[in-house]
């Protein structure tokens, strides 16, 4: 199997978008473009947040993973979600191929366990060695105030794992809302994962939460990246 670049968008938010287009719709759009959208919802202790349904809907539409966590568990979750998002992307490609060969319902889980183990080994190799583009999109609206230190720490943790990857990796950091637009690029594509945490801004940007428009804008960054790739070939 040949593997192209794994394109992952990781959205960190506390939910409750309140302006602009539906974020789940934007996630679906991303998915059609080969970009997986993963969401981590950061909640306060008091259980039932209204934003939870939205978080799941975004990840579902974006073909990615979603988790709801408290700020304290963020580091671990960011690393795991990113890892699972990568293997998930590879599995979905395999499943698609299986459907082509076998039948419409076939997937890896319908194969015997021994075959699954062989596939798992290959998937691990690929997810370690394939090229990765990871864009982190962070909600910096007012409600995130107390969570920012945890976000910074989680980004540091993520960079520690990403720096140990074998395959070529690029990272980019966006935050929303932006000063003049829905979202703002904080760090352009770089191979240095360390920059994610180092340059993480500690200042909030404002009250509105334009999650949908922010996703749309961040996506443009992937597009530019692939245009750039094409030109350089």
């Amino acid at each position: 199997m040949k593997m192209g670049t794994m394109k992952q968008l990781l959205l960190l938010t506390d939910g409750c978008s309140n302006t602009g287009e539906d974020p789940a719709m934007m996630a679906a759009f991303a998915r059609r473009r080969g970009i997986t959208v993963n969401v981590i919802g950061i909640v306060d202790g008091n259980g039932t947040d209204p934003g939870l349904a939205e978080i799941e809907a975004i990840a579902k539409a974006g073909g990615g993973e979603s988790r709801i966590v408290q700020a304290a568990a963020l580091s671990e979750t960011v690393v795991n979600v990113t890892r699972q998002a990568m293997t998930g992307t590879i599995y979905s490609i395999i499943n698609e191929e299986l459907r082509g060969i076998l039948n419409k319902e076939a997937n890896v889980e319908s194969l015997p366990p021994a075959t699954r183990s062989e596939i798992a080994e290959k998937v691990e190799d690929i997810s370690e060695e394939a090229a990765l583009e990871l864009l982190v999109l962070t909600d910096m609206s007012a409600s995130m105030k107390l969570k920012l230190p945890a976000v910074k720490e989680a980004l540091y943790d993520l960079s520690m794992s990403m720096q140990s990857r074998i395959g070529p990796s690029s990272f980019s950091l966006w935050t929303f809302p932006g000063k003049y637009s829905a979202a703002e690029e904080r760090i352009g594509w770089t191979n240095d994962a360390g920059k994610l945490a180092e340059s993480f801004p500690q200042l909030l940007s404002g009250g509105i939460t334009p999650t949908g428009p922010a996703i749309r804008q961040a996506l443009s960054s992937f597009m530019e990246m692939s245009e750039y790739d094409e030109k350089s070939i």
Binding site: T87, Y91, E109, R116, S117, I119, A120, E121, V123
Partner: peptide
């Protein structure tokens, strides 16, 4: 989950 079973088996 299926992926963990497969990788722990390995």
């Amino acid at each position: 989950d299926s992926a963990s079973v497969a990788s722990e088996t390995n």
